[in-house]
Amino acid sequence: MKILVINSGSSSIKFQLIEMPEKSVLANGMVERIGLDGSKIQLKVNDEEFEELRSIKNHEQGLEMIAGILLEPSVGLLKDADEIDAVGHRVVHGGSSFSKTVLIDEDVKEKIKELFSLAPLHNPHNFKGIEVSEKIFKRAAQIAVFDTAFHQSMPEEAFRYAIPETLYSDHQIRAYGFHGTSHRYVSKEAIDYLKKNDSKIITVHLGNGCSITAIKNGKSIEHSLGFGPMNGLVMGTRSGDIDQSVIFYMMDELGYSSNEVKKILQEESGMVGLTGYSDLREIETNAEQGDAVCNLALKMNAHRVKKYIGAYAAVLNGIDAIVFTAGIGENSNMMRELICTDLEFLGIELDHEKNDVRAKELREIQKATASVKILVIPTNEEIEIAKQSYQLVKNL
């Protein structure tokens, strides 16, 4: 079964063509800078890479180009668009309506549209990907895989806020959680690796967006992101946890509007706000060269993660493994070291030599004497989306 996985963002579309159930990636690529100067389309098939600069005005044009390049005879992937059996769409926010992967129909689309206000930077673009895909891949089953779905197993005491009841009952203000596809994938990989179904795992997703999840017996029971994807850990441009009084002070005393505060906390805070750099590699390099500001930012970032690890160890009543994943989690030995230092009382003891090894595969980086496994597991949200789409279509 050929499944096309689409991750439609604000100015880009990532895609993979995957043969299931073999999990064989036939092609992967990206359309970048949609609606901007310098837009381009990239495709990788086996070891061959194609890249072409094109004017790409909107997402519809971008998806049409993806279909066109997949159908290009010289590429040799597809002869007809009807060879695609299913299109799996990443949808960021499913609210309380969706606790699992679903076949997209008009009712599902209406509910996704109703959630635009909860994820204004993501859901509208995810929805556009669905609309355009329906026109191009007419025979394919259109499948929605929600980032929030994995966290619908959180107990009420974890997802509720201590606010008036009507704000929850009438307006659904609660913690939903995000990055669920990634947390689901790496936790399943960890459980299979540990051969331990009755497990207590903390997954740490560190990228431009960051989150951490407490997972008991394969189910999310606590998570750092909430009503929106802004709180919790320090991120690339987002502040993470902040005292609400700061927001009131910025508005009441400093004269910022609510939109200005939102922009500052979402786009101008986090590591870029602290250092002026958006790339963690630059921050790490500067810190190693003695830059005190960059050094402090890294310590603040790691400190926040350590706080959550301690809290989640309490929620889980123990830890079998900590999993680091996503771009920073998988590649930054410095961040992993800062986070794992001085956690011996929890059984977390990092082996520095193992931590410094570069590899694109699941690996252990704890000391032989440690009671808690420290795993680095590359995430693969596209494979997870393909797996869930395949299971759904197979059972239709």
Rank of each mutant, 00 (worst) to 15 (best):
F146E: 02
M271F: 09
I385A: 09
R281P: 05
K138N: 10
L274W: 08
S24R: 08
M30A: 10
L296D: 11
N58V: 11
K387L: 12
E330R: 06
V91D: 04
K57I: 05
Q42G: 03
N301A: 06
I191E: 12
Q42E: 13
V102K: 01
S269Q: 09
V372C: 09
E114P: 07
N7A: 07
C210E: 10
H205A: 05
G228E: 02
G38T: 04
D279W: 09
L43K: 02
K113D: 05
Q61P: 02
A190M: 10
L375S: 00
G38H: 12
F159Q: 00
G180F: 03
V186H: 04
Y176V: 06
G177N: 07
R238P: 01
Y277G: 03
E361L: 12
D241P: 08
V357D: 12
S97A: 14
L77H: 03
N331F: 03
I13R: 00
M154D: 07
E48D: 15
Y193N: 09
L115Q: 05
V315T: 15
H89K: 09
V357Q: 10
H223P: 10
D342N: 14
T379A: 09
G129W: 09
S133G: 06
V293Y: 03
G207L: 03
Q266R: 13
V261T: 08
T285C: 03
S97T: 13
R90T: 06
M65C: 04
G310H: 08
S99N: 14
K100T: 06
I247M: 09
R160M: 14
I385M: 12
G270W: 02
G209A: 10
L296I: 06
G270Y: 04
E189P: 01
E51K: 11
M230A: 01
D85K: 07
L392C: 12
Y308W: 10
K354S: 13
R184G: 00
